[in-house]
Amino acid sequence: MKSSRALLLLLLFVAVAFGAWKFFSSRGPGAADHLTVYYTKLDGTTLGRWPVSLRTQQSGESDIEHLHNMVLYAAVQAVAGPPSDVSAIRFPPGTHVLGVNVHGSTATVDLSKDVTSQGGGSFGETGEFKGLVYTVTGVPTIQAVQVTIEGSTVATLPGGHLELDTPLRRSDF
């Protein structure tokens, strides 16, 4: 009983504090409530799109945190790709996003080393990263994507073709 009353009081306090915070804080720029996942079709260059819902900025979620979360969501969706019955150039099986970071207009996307498991040609590399870059730069304010693998910047994938040691932009493709 005591603990539930304490909980109620705490919740009341939090609600009031929160309402006040919300009242005084300025909301970020019109947060998008959807995200376009881009993927590269099997012609090696044409983009397909797959819309997914995107959470609006939650109460208590700062602009910076929301941007981080949108970038994370975008990167994870891009690496997962469209549903399995859609033909798309996909990252090698097992590839996943370890984390993201946002510095200014550049998002760093850290990938698991599974991404290096595919001894592919320019086709796979171009298609995979084009989809990732288009998807992540679909997040407002993000212009470029720096790819890292297990935390390290790499010049290219091993035996690779695409340059990865500088940020990738839509205009690179």
Binding site: Q58, E65, N69, L72, Y73, V76, V79, A80, G81, P83
Partner: peptide, 17 residues
């Protein structure tokens, strides 16, 4: 982090917040 994202083996993303 507020988001929990789970990518299934069938390339679906499950997202909780």
């Amino acid at each position: 982090e507020r988001y929990v994202l789970i990518t299934t083996g069938a390339a679906q993303v499950i997202s909780f917040s």
